[in-house]
Nucleic acid binder design. Structure first.
Length: 765
RNA sequence: GCCGGAGUGGUGGAAUUGGUAUACACGUACGAUUCAAAAUCGUAUGCCGCAAGGCUUGUGGGUUCAAGUCCCACCUCCGGCACCA
């Protein structure tokens, strides 16, 4: 038989799959549907690195198993292509982002196809395609109409020398990543989405879905529901009050000072009264330069300034207490003000120690009573904040709003969608901080849809997260021009049965898309209240040294080379075998030879296949491989197959039916090799259309077991017993064992414990 | 700092979820095959020790007949922290 030639085999089958399209999902098939989803990639200019395909291969294994189980599988792919890197590349080179995106997606598509992933390419989508973003804009309009999209003043990063707004990622240690100049926070009007209106449901409905527990916990902590009270403190000698939010109203007698966020409005209002306003102002200015992480990351060292001349009155005991501003209080959370109880709160305690403030151990009082007594009210607060939805950029979906002097912000009529991005020469944001789109005056100046007067288009665009918040719905009906997807298609395909993605997307993308989905459910355009039934995650693949792969470090491993040298099936098997799927792991090109040798072994065993009766018991293997795939323990599924293949190798002859079962089990991991060997075996159709093998549970149960014998916690011997032997007989046998006798000689056997089928534990004294 | 996760041989990792730690694979050594090499096959391979035996799952404590697994404290690394995707 000829040698295993991965190039020849992989080319042959990929051409056939391209022609026959065996992975096309069928709308409304009578078969049970299974919708499997991976996060669609951002097509960067660097091309695919070996980390990208790990989740694709993992879900591909599951998709292929599902098909073998007779399901109608939808396993789609597309491109999440709006965003900063492409725009920055365009800024540097002058090449239009559309052109850059096309080159990058062409390259990504070629690379993914080279790996034999069973995506349904007929449903490929691209968030930058006007036919797609028409519907992203449409969804935004529905939110606008329901009052969920609104404008507010928000702090953004501002580079003082480039005079442009910066993404958080572009700010390094308070300096601009491009020019190194200083940055600061600057207030700017931005479009916001009121995700906080959904906070309670986003929290509660986690009960209804099957997400990995850490994912649920992280989302819950991010939403940060807390029940507490709002209590007003009178400002001494003024009519105003300051509202604080506290989860511990019962500690109010220990409240010895108050802290406001430096940005709190009242600080400016009290300017006249504050005797050290210069100092206060300087502190506020310094705070502007800090990121939120820096503000909370300073460890024990707390900073702040007292508002001298201002006192407030603790409503519980009528004591006058001082007021500070400090950056450990955030203006966005609660009311932006706290009553500080140093006896009960660690941060307040640190602060009180540093500023020599009173620490009073107070008697705790009944929560409800004290709230009543001080005229407070019970409230529920969330850490979750509304979503800043504007970007002053070019490469994003235009926000479909028109600003009219008379009518204010007016929705673009739906029949005018999509509002396409205009052509412009210069992608640089303007000095005033506005989007480069303001320069496209022909596009900007329009008639107001409502009064036909002079008006201007909104020039901010949407963030990258917009298109990815609903893309899984589009796959159900990717060519529809009448709706984002037809109701019938949505009813058939959604929800997504299994969504795998990176842990790093847990609190943003995953939460954002749940929010959009719930909104769409509320306006009755999707049939389910949650988008994803199940969510799992994969770990990153790191470079050989354990560092993150990045172009700048020059440690990126390109799958093109790996496929050239070892083949797609070896790459696939290696990525599944290298370690636990959900953990980060370092790449090692040296270790690929192991799985390559395994494939070649399977290839060689083909020669020993005879028309004989089955001579290997496969039940345990089938059970283990199947269960491991379902729990994404792909590494142990493969080692189980390796054990089987090692056993087959030792035999003179292999039964055709046993080998056929092996090929069906192997096919999800190494589809090209499995197809080729299936064909050589003279198997019917394709290995892909074979039924997943069944097993007999009874045959997976061992009849005898090796029982370890522990004496005083140390293993001193082992005996073989039948699994249904009585406890008494096993204990007797254990005590008669020669090794046991040696170790118990001259000692008192105090206790003998038998754990069925596992261990005998003898305790002596 | 806060939230989530991880730490096991020379290396990647396995461990029925409290029951014989180191499966599977890489590497290494020796042997077979070969004119030779590659490939392949076989044997060995946690550490200390001639052996008997002892020790070993990031560190230190604890619970238990029994701890990689549970509890407490700590150290290190990874992901997220709201404008990267």
């Amino acid at each position: 038989m000829e040698k295993y030639n991965h190039k020849k085999i992989e080319k042959k089958w990929q051409e056939k799959w391209e022609k026959d399209e065996p992975y096309k999902a069928e709308d409304f098939s009578k078969k049970e549907k299974s919708y499997l989803l991976v996060e669609f990639p951002y097509p960067s200019g660097d091309g695919l690195h070996v980390g990208h395909p790990r989740p694709y291969i993992g879900m591909d294994v599951i998709a292929r198993k599902r098909r073998a189980e007779g399901k109608n599988v939808l396993f789609p792919i597309g491109w999440d292509a709006f965003g900063l890197p492409t725009e920055n590349y365009a800024l540097k080179t002058g090449i239009h982002p559309r052109e850059v995106t096309k080159q990058n997606t062409d390259n990504f598509r070629r690379q993914i196809k080279m790996l034999g992933i069973s995506f349904d390419w007929s449903r490929e989508i691209n968030t930058t395609d006007p036919k797609y973003y028409k519907w992203t804009q449409w969804i935004f309009l529905q939110m606008f109409k329901k009052g969920l999209a609104y404008k507010a003043s928000v702090a953004i990063n501002w580079c003082l020398s480039c005079k442009i707004g910066l993404a958080n990622e572009e700010v390094v240690d308070g300096h601009c990543e491009r020019c190194g100049g200083e940055t600061e926070k600057r207030q700017k009007e931005q479009w916001m989405l009121a995700i906080t209106k959904y906070a309670d449901r986003l929290d509660k409905d986690l009960d209804d879905v099957d997400y990995l527990e850490p994912i649920k916990i992280q989302q819950r902590n991010w939403i940060g529901k807390s029940e507490g009270a709002e209590i007003s403190f009178d400002i001494k000698g003024r009519d105003e009050k300051i509202d604080v939010f506290t989860t511990r109203p019962d500690t109010i007698f220990g409240a010895t000072y108050m802290v406001l966020a430096p940005e709190h409005q009242l600080v400016q209002k009290l300017k006249e009264q504050i005797t050290n306003f210069d100092e206060v102002e300087k502190y506020i200015k310094d705070t502007k330069k800090k990121t939120e992480i820096e503000r909370t990351a300073e460890g024990k060292e707390k900073t702040g300034v007292e508002l001298k001349g201002v006192k407030v009155i603790n409503p519980a005991n009528k004591e006058e207490i001082p007021v500070f501003i400090a950056d450990y209080v955030m203006v966005e959370y609660g009311t932006g003000a706290i009553m500080a109880v140093p006896a009960y709160d660690e941060r307040d305690n640190d602060f009180a120690n540093k500023f020599n403030l009173l620490i009073v151990e107070s008697n705790l009082v009944d929560k409800d009573e004290v709230i009543k007594k001080v005229n407070g009210k019970k409230v529920v607060k969330y850490k979750l904040r509304d979503w800043v939805f504007s970007r002053q950029r070019y490469w994003g979906e235009p926000i479909p709003i028109i600003h009219c002097q008379k009518c204010g912000s007016v929705a673009v009529p739906e029949e005018d969608l999509p509002i396409e991005l205009p052509e412009i020469e210069d992608y640089k944001p303007t000095d005033s901080g506005e989007s480069p789109l303001v320069k496209a005056t022909d596009w900007v100046n329009v008639k107001c849809p409502s009064c036909s007067g002079e008006a201007k288009r909104e020039t901010d665009v949407m963030p990258n997260w917009a298109g990815s918040s609903w893309y899984y719905l589009r796959y159900a009906d990717s060519d529809n021009d009448e709706a984002f997807a037809d109701e019938k298609n949505l009813k058939y395909w959604t929800p997504v049965d299994w969504y795998n993605g990176g842990m790093e997307h847990t609190t943003l993308h995953l939460l954002y898309s749940r929010f959009w989905h719930k909104f769409l459910y509320d306006i009755k355009v999707v049939p389910t209240h949650e988008p994803y039934q199940k969510r799992t995650s994969h770990g990153l693949i790191l470079a050989e040294g354990g560092e993150k792969m990045s172009k700048s470090k020059g440690n990126v491993v390109n799958p093109d080379e790996v496929v050239e040298n070892f083949g797609a099936d070896s790459l696939r098997l290696y990525e599944m075998f290298m370690g636990p799927f959900d953990q980060a792991i370092a790449w090692s090109t040296d270790n690929i030879v192991g799985v390559r040798r395994f494939i070649e072994k399977v290839w060689r065993i083909n020669e020993k296949v005879k028309d004989i009766k089955s001579n290997i018991a496969l039940d345990s293997t089938i059970k283990k491989v199947g269960e491991d795939i379902e729990t994404m323990k792909f590494n142990t599924a493969i080692s189980t197959l390796m054990i089987l293949v090692n056993e087959m190798e030792k035999k003179e002859e292999i039964a055709k039916e046993d080998y056929a079962s092996l090929l069906v089990l192997l096919a999800p991991f190494a589809p090209h090799t499995a197809e080729e060997l299936w064909e050589k075996l003279g198997g019917k159709d394709s290995v892909l259309s074979q039924k997943w093998p069944e097993y007999d549970e009874i045959k997976t149960i061992e009849e005898t077991a090796q029982i370890a014998i522990q004496i005083d916690g140390k293993v001193r011997g082992s005996i073989e017993v039948s699994v249904d032997e009585t406890e008494e007989k096993v204990k007797e046998k254990a005590l008669r064992d020669e090794n046991v006798k040696k170790w118990t000689e001259g000692k008192n056997v105090e206790k003998v414990i038998y754990i069925k089928g596992k261990i005998v534990s003898i305790v002596t004294s």
